[in-house]
Measured scan of single mutants.
Amino acid sequence: ATNIVGKVKWYNSTKNFGFIEQDNGGKDVFVHKSAVDAAGLHSLEEGQDVIFDLEEKQGKAYAVNLRIK
């Protein structure tokens, strides 16, 4: 899925991951530091509006192509 809109539920910059809540009511999506770095960001803030693509690997969904809304 592409261009999914959501809000950062939480992001832990020490542990380098967090979760994004989808605006469409879907399951929360894992986001890793690598996606944050690829977006040219240092971190994510709770409540921040983002747009992302959804990829699945080994049955787990995660956010890629992250951008600030």
Rank of each mutant, 00 (worst) to 15 (best):
1 A>V: 07
2 T>G: 10
2 T>C: 04
3 N>P: 05
4 I>W: 06
6 G>R: 01
6 G>I: 01
8 V>Y: 01
8 V>Q: 01
9 K>Q: 03
10 W>C: 04
10 W>T: 04
12 N>T: 13
13 S>G: 11
15 K>C: 04
16 N>S: 12
17 F>W: 09
17 F>M: 10
17 F>I: 05
17 F>Q: 03
18 G>C: 02
18 G>T: 01
18 G>D: 00
18 G>Q: 01
20 I>F: 07
21 E>L: 14
21 E>S: 15
22 Q>V: 14
22 Q>N: 09
23 D>I: 11
24 N>F: 08
25 G>T: 14
25 G>P: 08
25 G>F: 12
26 G>P: 09
26 G>L: 06
27 K>P: 07
27 K>Q: 15
30 F>V: 03
30 F>N: 01
32 H>D: 05
32 H>Q: 03
32 H>K: 03
34 S>D: 06
34 S>R: 07
34 S>M: 14
35 A>V: 15
36 V>N: 02
37 D>P: 02
37 D>C: 04
40 G>T: 05
40 G>C: 04
42 H>Q: 09
43 S>K: 10
43 S>D: 09
44 L>V: 05
44 L>F: 08
45 E>F: 14
45 E>M: 12
46 E>H: 09
46 E>L: 05
47 G>K: 10
47 G>D: 14
48 Q>V: 09
48 Q>T: 14
49 D>G: 13
49 D>C: 04
49 D>L: 10
49 D>H: 15
50 V>A: 05
51 I>C: 04
52 F>R: 00
52 F>D: 00
53 D>C: 03
53 D>S: 08
54 L>D: 01
56 E>G: 06
57 K>N: 11
58 Q>K: 12
60 K>D: 04
60 K>Y: 08
60 K>N: 08
60 K>P: 04
60 K>M: 13
62 Y>G: 09
62 Y>L: 06
62 Y>Q: 09
63 A>C: 04
63 A>K: 00
63 A>R: 00
64 V>R: 11
66 L>S: 00
67 R>N: 08
67 R>L: 08
68 I>S: 13
68 I>D: 09
69 K>G: 08
69 K>D: 10
